[in-house]
Design a protein around this nucleic acid. Sequence first.
DNA 1: ATGAAAGCGCTAACAT
DNA 2: ATGTTAGCGCTTTCAT
Lengths: 355, 355
Amino acid sequence: MKRTQKTSSRSADDATEKGRPQMADLARLAGVSVATVSRALNGSALISKDTRERIEELARSLNYSINIGAKNLRLKQNRTIAVVIPYDRVSRQHISDPFFLAMVGSLADAITERGFDMLLSRVDAESLDSAADLYNSGKAIGIILIGQWRHHDQLNQMAAKRMPIVVWGTQIPQQLYCTVGGDNMAGGAMATRHLLERGYRRIVFIGDPQLAEVTYRHQGYVEALAAYGLQPDPQLLVCVPFDANEARAGINRLCEQGVSFDAVFACSDVMASAASQVLHLHGRTVPDAVGVVGYDDIEWASHCNPPLTTVRQPIGAAGAELVDALLCVIDGVVVVPRVLPVELVVRSSTRPDPG
Amino acid sequence: MKRTQKTSSRSADDATEKGRPQMADLARLAGVSVATVSRALNGSALISKDTRERIEELARSLNYSINIGAKNLRLKQNRTIAVVIPYDRVSRQHISDPFFLAMVGSLADAITERGFDMLLSRVDAESLDSAADLYNSGKAIGIILIGQWRHHDQLNQMAAKRMPIVVWGTQIPQQLYCTVGGDNMAGGAMATRHLLERGYRRIVFIGDPQLAEVTYRHQGYVEALAAYGLQPDPQLLVCVPFDANEARAGINRLCEQGVSFDAVFACSDVMASAASQVLHLHGRTVPDAVGVVGYDDIEWASHCNPPLTTVRQPIGAAGAELVDALLCVIDGVVVVPRVLPVELVVRSSTRPDPG
DNA sequence: ATGAAAGCGCTAACAT
DNA sequence: ATGTTAGCGCTTTCAT
């Protein structure tokens, strides 16, 4: 059967032809077998130094690089990690939030550093199965999912099918998958406590407590208030997804309704910054009339005007942690969810310590 | 030779075992040959509707998904596009600039939309060959490079080797590779003209004209000045790479040296925002004392305080254009460099029209 | 309409 | 130290 005309017609000078050279070419040119070439290129001890060097030299001169696909197939291995960013149709959360983008950057670094390739894909969160496909089809050996949103159950199902998956998010009781995330409760508490310490009392909370991570931030908020003998006022809850416009609208509504407040704690810097802007338009100065605290500490938080007091999430470390966790999961090691420390960064969107 | 114990031991209920099912499993379970399964799953007209449906059903119930690697090897095809972000050791430009990150997001969308996978990697710009490897090893069918930096020659060499590559950047005489980029000359000119129209006269330029894109923006700047009968003052050139801190330091120096200026045109919003901040510290108000114009129109430009007047680059469209261009190059179609229109977005960092 | 068998580019067990 | 050969999971020609 000679369907393989192309191959069978490969002549001696073939390597210089259009197609990239392959082992067979090197073998022919070096006058050895393909096996020898394979071994030489893989640094097998079986090959004489002489032969190896000759082959290596040849490979270099032909600009040969091994066909990873074939190698992977043969070895049933794979060095690709899929990073998935679900976008939520409902909340219309898009990939554009700088926090997520920064996370992608951090992951790119961490994955590259460990000698893996990173496959980035966006998937409709309503059909996370298509993320599963990345694994099932052998495109990747594991999946890192950024944000757990409302998809706890789907994630549990995937994990139940022994899919190697790690999620940036928060630990939820009875979860089967591994999460890595910031300490949301502590973050919510330290932001709120800071505002209280600076003399603010009526603190607006911006965020959707239905989202797992926000749940805990809100809990921290409530606890910090309680420590000051305060009750959370439902009027002060602006329940919106991570979105600048929604946050803007929310604060705007509050102002127009004449709800009294003297501080804002937003669950992302993007929303905090948006809030800050709206307040400005209403003639309420930050930090004097209203104190503002954000979340994430994305780069621009320090470039804002005024620079944002915020809860820093360790984005740089997060990438590394996620990848390490995933590699453990792949190795079958049980990994307990990891909670990364967060840190309050005090800038100028809250007024100086009165004490 | 029974090295393949695992395989040969695959029993009838094998598909439920740990390993993911493959065509052989479906074939056995359906009582047909692998060839039939393959054809059925690929919708071949040769297969009777009956058989096809039976096999499709089986595949679904077993949660089968085809091994892409094997398919690609056999078909010598591939649906992966590599996106490369070089980082420049010299300028220390990192992946963190929101503009690049936004571009990654845009590319992810465009690539996904066309049914391809996106491989994201960071490479040391000094050794762009490692980017070439992505293609040579068959990991990807083509490369999209974000930013041409100082690597014109290397890129030309890669293109000369018939590597499918498209670069986000600017057209340079005698380039062998295809570029897609904003209209930098027009952008530089419209930013400068705007400042002049608003009554500013001594305009600082922040950016490194050695970088191809900046070269043209600076040229536009010079031309716009000339149209007003002005000469560019070398004192007003802050020659720094795309970096907030460098920009900050640059403006700071100018202030301390007492160089007189009443406006700033920065080659990125990040730098513009940084400049704005430093000016604030020096007690110079934006836009009254100093007008500021940025570049890119990243999301936060509108959330800044004051919101930034800037030159919008069509980030959303850019992703699609880059991918389309690459697919053309891959098809062997000659693609002329594409220049995307840019647009001035007037906000509050420049004072109102006096006219 | 279906099956047998070859082969995509590579590795490794088994020769020698 | 090197060659021979089978096979990774799939598609397709050729035969039936």
